[in-house]
Design a protein around this nucleic acid. Structure first.
Length: 496
RNA sequence: GGUCCUGUGGCCGAGUGGCUAGGCAGAGCUCUGCAAAAGCUCGUACAGCGGUUCGAAUCCGCUCGGGACCUCCA
């Protein structure tokens, strides 16, 4: 089997994945800022990294997956007169900042659960790691890469860039970056245009503030990830991930902070997921074109024709590679919904197949299926290409359906191959892709009622009383229960 | 302006220089009391123009179009 290779933003190419410690993976993903509901773009990133997390587990790695919760106030802009996001919202809603944090943290976790994302192994909060952030800031100061102005500590980007390339992650030169930045205002206390705050002095009315060697204040945005990744994963770890929009600023600053503090770049592999778009434009908070997952699940949004389930959305995302943009539309979602249904019905058949011990009667077909299955691993190892894995699964589907319909005999495939199909479908659909059947199983009493109706209908059919049999089928369909007559005389029930 | 990404059949989307991606929609056929599902077959797509090559959607150049980042955002 091939080795896993992943695209490293830092080197801009695919590299074979070699963990720092054999058998273990340390992965840090920038989590949400919990001052409002997560929108779907955020969810895409976390679904992408959930997929990677699941795949590492599938490969047998022990994974420490750290995803932070940003619950400490950051400035709205990079100017210190701005309110922080939490206290602003709090005043608006007459709530304590930590009430806001609590509400949206719970909401976020709920959404992650609905999408069937596994929880990270550690989910640290910024406010829970203030002292670590202060310590790191002190060390950066001691190392000479930061300076204090009136109780605020700034990172000295130009000094840093003399020793290490500041724009290494996004392949930019300092001059080019400076060119794109606005002029410093007259009263600005920063020395350099690109300098960013490690610690920010708080005004008395500021709701979230902590004591520090430089007076009361709060941490800058970038330092939390540096401090927490270092604490739980060490100075150097395997993977650091996040959305592409974080690369140029947040991740660039993280690398600079870690280098300035520990003289080493934190992560070996930097993974960035691409944006979700609506009508070709990026979905974002500031653009106001974002969907909330809840709106999607209820269909309650002007752009949505109807509701789409969490698994439909997850499947929809898996049909695209994580580094490609994905455009959102009703048509595309409906296509995904149908495709997933087809795949899942085939999976239901697969589960019921009885793997014999006989050799394959159709050698060619047996080999074809085997090689299809093997290619799934190849696709996944090629930078988590879920789109191709799905394509392969869909190529196996007609074979499965043909076995069910009797076009292909079960014995055409060897028992080993049948068992492999079962293993692969389960591994990929459930364990790696994290899909689950959303149809609620009917409870005992209703099941009995349904069974009765099916029997009455069967009797009617035998008497060629099609008026009655069609009435039962049509009315049940109207209630969301679809009956399908199978060739063998049986009936398949599915819920819509 | 700088740094990049991107343009694939009606829609969504993979794609290693040569072999059918796949899904959805559409057409035909088979099965079927009908329906649904399923199976089989079908579109001969790669923005345009040049170039490299025996051969390019895939490499190079130019043109046109779309997008991202450079400012809070996954």
């Amino acid at each position: 089997m091939s080795q896993l290779s992943i695209y490293n933003s830092l080197t801009r190419k695919k590299e074979q994945f070699v963990p720092l410690t054999p058998g273990y993976v340390g992965m840090y993903v920038c989590g949400p800022t919990v001052y409002s509901d997560v929108h779907l773009g955020n969810c895409r990133t976390f679904i992408s990294f959930d997929l990677m997390y699941r795949y590492f587990l599938h490969l047998g790695y022990k994974v420490r997956y750290v995803r932070n919760i940003t619950d400490a106030g950051h400035l709205e802009g990079d100017r210190d007169e701005g309110d922080d996001k939490f206290s602003k919202k709090a005043r608006l809603e007459q709530l304590e900042p930590m009430e806001i944090v609590q509400r949206y943290t719970l909401g976020f976790r709920k959404m992650m659960e609905m999408f069937n994302n596994l929880p990270p192994t550690i989910e640290p909060t910024a406010t829970g790691h203030i002292s670590e952030q202060i310590e790191m800031t002190q060390q950066i100061l001691a190392n000479g890469y930061a300076y204090e102005v009136n109780g605020t500590i700034y990172f000295d980007v130009q000094k840093y860039d003399k020793e290490k390339p500041y724009g290494i992650l996004t392949n930019r030169k300092l001059e080019d970056l400076l060119e794109g930045t606005r002029e410093l205002g007259g009263q600005d206390e920063k020395r350099g245009r690109l300098d960013f705050a490690l610690w920010i002095k708080a005004k008395p009315e500021h709701l979230m503030q902590w004591p520090s060697p430089w007076g009361m204040g709060f941490p800058g945005w970038h330092i939390e990830c540096s401090a927490m990744s270092k604490k739980y994963l060490g100075n150097e770890f395997d993977i650091h991930g996040g959305g592409m929009d974080l690369a140029a600023t947040h991740h660039t600053n993280e690398i600079a902070q870690n280098q300035a503090c520990y003289h080493v770049s934190p992560a070996r592999y930097w993974l960035h997921t691409n944006m979700l778009t609506v009508n070709g434009t990026r979905m974002s908070k500031s653009a106001g074109n974002g969907f909330l997952p809840g709106e999607l699940f209820t269909g309650n949004h002007p752009l949505l024709e109807r509701a789409y389930s969490p698994m439909t959305v997850r499947f929809f995302m898996l049909q695209t590679h994580y580094r490609s943009t994905l455009d959102f539309s009703n048509e595309a979602l409906q296509a995904a919904e149908k495709g997933m249904k087809r795949l899942w019905e085939a999976y239901d058949i697969v589960k019921k197949l009885e793997a014999g011990t006989v050799a394959a009667t159709d050698k060619a077909l047996d080999e074809k299926v085997s090689s299809l299955l093997a290619s799934m691993d190849e696709c996944m190892n090629d930078d988590f290409n879920t789109a191709r894995v799905l394509a392969v699964l869909f190529e196996v589907v007609p074979i499965i359906n043909s076995i069910k319909d009797g076009h292909i005999k079960l014995q055409a495939l060897s028992g080993t191959t049948i068992a492999a199909v079962q293993t692969y479908f389960k591994a990929y659909l459930e364990n790696i892709f994290g899909l689950k059947n959303e149809v609620q199983s009917e409870d005992g009493k209703l099941s009995g009622v349904l069974q009765l109706l099916i029997e009455i209908r069967k009797d009617a059919k035998q008497k060629k009383d099609y008026a009655t049999s069609d009435k039962i089928r049509n009315q049940l369909l109207g209630l969301g229960v679809a009956l399908k007559d199978e060739k063998d005389g049986g009936v398949t029930v599915s819920f819509t």
